[in-house]
């Protein structure tokens, strides 16, 4: 990370409380602040690669307790509304994967104790493919998928 970028980063984080203060006091470097962001998982070019990098395992148990709400046909791949809900107990995290994107992992959500197993967001999809929800609960990985037809891709090109 160049010195210039570091400056910008410092300015940006000064307002974010404890972490910002720790950075400005030189206790932790900017790189460490974002250490939690799973770069290799987001850079992975396959579903297995992303899941393995994120969870250290590719063993997914299919589950009909996970509901994915997504359009059957997305006219604009740049904005595909997705919501995921499950009644599996003790959900720790929910990840959303677009199978045929160049880098399939779109997002991963770590839930707090009182947080319900429900997430709604909007993702970009390059082409028609499955949207896969991976739910981590009790150390196990559950998944389900839903096909979304994309008429115009949303990842440039």
């Amino acid at each position: 990370m160049t010195d210039m970028k570091r400056r910008i980063f410092l300015r940006g984080t000064l307002t974010t409380g404890a972490i910002g203060m720790a950075v400005s006091a030189g206790l932790i470097t900017p790189r460490m602040v974002l250490a939690a962001w799973p770069k290799t998982a987001f850079d992975a070019t396959s579903v297995d690669g992303a899941v393995n990098s994120l969870f250290g395992s590719t063993t997914l148990t299919g589950s009909n307790k996970i509901k994915i709400k997504a359009p059957d046909i997305a006219e604009n791949g740049a904005v595909v509304p997705i919501s995921i809900e499950t009644d599996i107990e003790g959900v720790e995290s929910i990840s959303i994967i677009a199978e045929k994107n160049a880098t399939p992992l779109t997002s991963s959500f770590v839930l707090g104790k009182g947080t319900e197993a429900f997430i709604a967001t909007r993702i970009k999809m390059a082409k028609t493919s499955s949207v896969i929800a991976v739910v981590k609960a009790g150390g196990k990985l559950y998944s389900t998928g839903k096909e979304v037809k994309v008429t115009i891709g949303g990842c440039g090109g």
């Binding site: 939690a36 993702i123 970009k124």
Partner: peptide, 18 residues
């Protein structure tokens, strides 16, 4: 209550509900 890790495949002007 929530930590979201995002890649570039979240749509422009992101929407999130939980």
């Amino acid at each position: 209550v929530l930590t979201a890790e995002w890649g570039p495949a979240i749509s422009k002007n992101p929407y999130l509900s939980f």
